[in-house]
Design a protein around this nucleic acid. Structure first.
Lengths: 210, 210
DNA sequence: AAACTCTGTTTCCTATAGTGAACCCATTCA
DNA sequence: TGAATGGGTTCACTATAGGAAACAGAGTTT
């Protein structure tokens, strides 16, 4: 299946979704934001370049702003469009979950080349997966194939020195404190350079599946 | 400027999210969706109640649609507004982006209580925001208010010893190598316990904006 | 209390968004 | 081949959004 077709399929599916869009009290919302910041209509006028009168009419739902006007609003107020549309956000989330992992207390997953220690594994449903890795491998040959997984990865060297092989770049030498961010569906592999095993901290995003 | 605002600003910069919405080829986007679904202008006209001519002009950026028109669009096409604005991830993955940051070479953002060093800030549009922080604060009193931002945060102590205050839990003492994962819209604040400033590595998810 | 100042609203006027009809250009059909 | 259909664009007109200025109301100052 071609990329184009894939994308078209995605679009079709996407547009098939039926979101009930209610009133969208945009004027009301704007007023909320304005008052929350203690801005006067004049202030907002200065920031956005829209006339005081126009703003008043928008707030009172007397006119339906043009899209360019909306852009001036989000630019001038420094807010995101979703922010302007999203009603006050009733539940500010604040779940306040927390998951502590003491040094060395993570969940260990040994492999021939790496020894992973999963951190914060009490917590389900998280948007990042942190783990510490002891790099055992000393040569690229020890990997039968590229390590590869959906998403993005951040990596920092905690101890020792490593060489990072990646599919599309020259190998890179990383010392303690160096860090790198990359798309982890690009093949990658780490080897330790010093006598002792190197230790790196990685944080991955979970696979997309979206 | 409060600590909260500081960090939020830093996060905005770091996430590579364009602070302001520029061209916003809305017309182009609409056409994409229409063609992907193999709809004619007439079809879309039926669905949305907008005139065929109007749709044509919108697609060719000859007019800036009124907000009510945009609503008719998203209702009629059954799509979300963000969908209409966000070009669909055109990358079929495997972009193979990469961003190296050598020890101490990040982008510094000092505040009274913390000194942030943003890592991997070359890369825009990423799903994690890594930064190293030197914790200057020695007492909880130095914070005017909770640090708080949408999303989740992972944190590991690299050097020194810190106490983590959180809104819903008792303060927690963290030593080198300890790590914690938490919902960062729960208020939080770090203070250094030793004589020297402590150093921690943090990775945040970008704010929701959904 | 009058004059001033700062707010938000309302009044006009013009610029432009939205509409139906006419138009153009392909493709299909007789 | 010419007629007919169905796609998108352009035109001429009407409806409406945006702006400048006038207005109105609530404090302040004199």
């Amino acid at each position: 299946m071609s990329a184009t077709t894939d994308q078209q399929a995605a679009l079709r599916i996407a547009s098939g979704r039926k979101p009930f869009v209610e009133p969208l009290r945009l004027g009301e919302r704007l007023k909320e934001i304005r008052l929350a910041n203690q801005w006067t209509l004049e202030d907002v006028s200065q920031r956005t370049g829209l006339a005081r009168s126009t703003l008043s009419k928008i707030e009172n739902d007397q006119i339906s702003p043009t899209f360019t006007a909306v852009q001036k609003l989000i630019n001038g107020l420094g807010i995101d469009l979703p922010q302007l549309l999203t009603p006050p956000r009733v539940q500010p989330r604040t779940m306040g979950r927390r998951d502590l992992t003491r040094q060395g207390e993570g969940q260990r997953h040994p492999t021939p080349t790496y020894e992973h220690e999963l951190l914060s594994c009490e917590l389900a449903q998280k948007r990042m997966i942190p783990f510490k890795t002891i790099v055992r491998a000393r040569s690229f040959d020890e990997f039968s194939e590229w390590v590869r997984h959906d998403g993005e990865e951040f990596l920092m060297v905690l101890e020792g020195e490593v060489r990072l092989y990646t599919e599309f770049y020259e190998p890179l030498q990383l010392s303690r404190g160096d860090s790198i961010y990359f798309d982890s569906d690009m093949g990658h592999a780490l080897v330790s350079l010093g006598d002792d095993d190197a230790v790196v901290l990685s944080v991955c995003t979970p696979g997309d599946s979206a």
